[in-house]
Amino acid sequence: MSKEAVLLELRHVGKYFGGLRAVDDINIKVESGDLHCLLGPNGAGKSTIFKMIMGIYKPTNGSVFFNQRNVTHLKSWDRVKLGISIKMQTPGVFGELTVYENMKIAVQHFTRHAEVKSEVSRLLELLMIRDLKDELVDNLSHGQQQWLEIGMALACKPKLLLLDEPAAGMGPEETDRTAELIRQLNQQGITILFIDHDMAFVKKLARNTTVLHLGRKFAEGTVEEIETNQQVVDIYLGKS
């Protein structure tokens, strides 16, 4: 992996909440163009890592580098401007506004005024929820809200897209559609780091995987390598 190709790097990153080491001495490199998965059981520290990448949590120690730049002390909004965008685990959409209004809030900040409408339309088309544009977001299904939030993250024109459990709570058909969408975004050149613990979903998508356990990096490699790693199988996949 050449140094230039590394888009995101966590160096010895840790986050302690009092005596609890939620994340401890994590080193992760995500290559530009990668489709990388953070895998691990509940409480492994996956979402905490995402929050440190976004600047929601400040690491207790270690540094976060984006595009070779140390962003550890940057505010969330500055990181978004640099090209990091996130879809959180629980949908962070504006429930009392329409789909269009939600998208407009996201799009208007990164798009020239005259192009806002066409950009919103383009993204809604991409997400296949254009028909819902006048619908109140509270009336959407969970899956549709997740797609909308992915759309809002895309409106920030990210280089790196963080997706925290993008298919959580979705049925098989919606999950397939989400996987297809993520693959499509990655092919368009967006580096994607996502969290999931559905191994079937991860296998469909990820090229590289980092397995976390109890806040520490447990293993890393391609999906095939992870699948055949006996220790991972033991601690995570629940096979004896």
């Binding site: 505010k75 962070g92 504006f94 809030i105 920030c156």
Partner: peptide, 20 residues
Amino acid sequence: IAVVAIRENRERTKLLGYNV
């Protein structure tokens, strides 16, 4: 519109690039 977004969800608005 950004102001309404802040009222509805401050943390989310930060993550859309707004200096809240």
